[in-house]
């Protein structure tokens, strides 16, 4: 086993896939010589050139639509949108076009494209560079959605996404890029719709996504010393969502906390909570707890930002509440 960062995991996946399939074209802002805003695409332009790794003007709606045009004419584009906040600029091409073109055309074409974008607070980037907007895309049928946490999951899911024919929204967390994890040698792919139990436990189930998986694991460590055994389930993909694994855990523990960095209202936690309530109604011993970003825009100044975005302590508090 070797240890790599999440940044390296994404970079390796992109490099290997570009080398494997000449139909893959990456387009996005500053992904070329600059190496990407988060240095995730570093070295790819030097290796593959403009024909495969193409810097675009700052035109998010246009870029996503150009990706769609590539996708329905035989290419396999990977589009980078620098921050998930900027997907707001691209909503027509993503929501009204890419998500619907297969259905509207009666299945004549499938937009084989991956849109990679970056979520998360924690860097004092303020309200327009810190949002976690992945739940928006759960609300619109037409995208598969991945939101991995570890280097192993990022690499395996990104390679699977690139090879998948259906369109994929792929969410990476800016504060996870430096996180390290062990990965095997050789190639691996991870199926969409397969959750991973990151830590086994008996008392409370914590369903956590992306960076929140790390915080949930740290919280579980702390709670262990206080006598509460926490199971951490990482869904890894939201569409499809592996309810079987989540429900199996909840039926075992009877108590559940859902931690996702999107805003609480109408967030991922709301959807998962509703499904747990339906699927596991007779097994629940406590109300379902949700931990997410508070329902205000994300403030700039660190004391306020750290209060608004979920912390390890917030998870500990919610688990104790659920365990009461």
């Amino acid at each position: 086993m070797r240890t790599i960062t999440c940044r390296q995991a994404v970079n390796e996946a992109l490099r290997e896939e570009l080398a494997r399939d000449s139909r893959i074209v990456m387009i996005g802002e500053d992904i070329g010589p600059y190496g990407g805003n988060f240095k995730v695409t570093e070295g790819l332009w030097r290796e593959f050139g403009d024909a495969r790794v193409l810097d675009t003007p700052i035109s998010e709606n246009g870029i996503c639509g150009v990706g769609l045009g590539l996708a329905i004419t035989g290419m396999r584009p990977i589009v980078e949108v620098m921050f998930s906040d900027f997907t707001a600029n691209a909503m027509d091409q993503l929501v009204n076009q890419a998500a619907k073109i297969r259905y509207m055309s009666g299945g004549q074409v499938t937009p084989t494209m991956v849109v990679r974008t970056v979520i998360g607070g924690g860097r004092s980037s303020a309200a327009q560079h810190s949002q976690s907007l992945h739940a928006w895309f759960m609300h619109v049928p037409g995208f598969k959605i991945a939101i991995p946490s570890t280097p192993y999951d990022l690499k395996g899911l990104l390679k699977a996404a690139v090879r998948m024919d259906d369109p994929v929204m792929f969410f990476e967390h800016k504060m996870a890029y430096n996180m390290q994890g062990e990965v095997p040698d050789g190639e691996w792919l991870i199926d969409f719709g397969k959750a991973d139990v990151k830590r086994a436990g008996d008392d409370v189930t914590v369903v956590a996504t992306s960076l929140m998986v790390y915080r949930a694991l740290a919280a579980a460590e702390k709670l262990e010393s206080e006598g509460i055994s926490v199971e951490v389930v990482d869904p890894r993909t939201l569409i499809p969502l592996d309810m079987d694994t989540i429900a199996a855990s909840v039926r075992k523990t009877g108590r559940v906390v859902i931690v996702d960095e999107g805003h609480v209202t109408c967030g991922v936690g709301a959807e998962i909570a509703a499904r747990i309530a339906y699927d596991c109604f007779d097994y629940l011993d406590a109300p379902i707890e949700r931990v997410g970003t508070l329902d205000v825009p994300i403030p700039f100044s660190p004391p306020m930002e750290n209060y608004v975005v979920p912390s390890e302590d917030d998870i500990v508090f919610a688990v104790k509440k659920a365990a009461r």
């Binding site: 045009g69 996708a71 076009q97």
Partner: peptide, 8 residues
Amino acid sequence: PMGTGAGL
């Protein structure tokens, strides 16, 4: 944008 992508 789609037509422009087909052009690309």
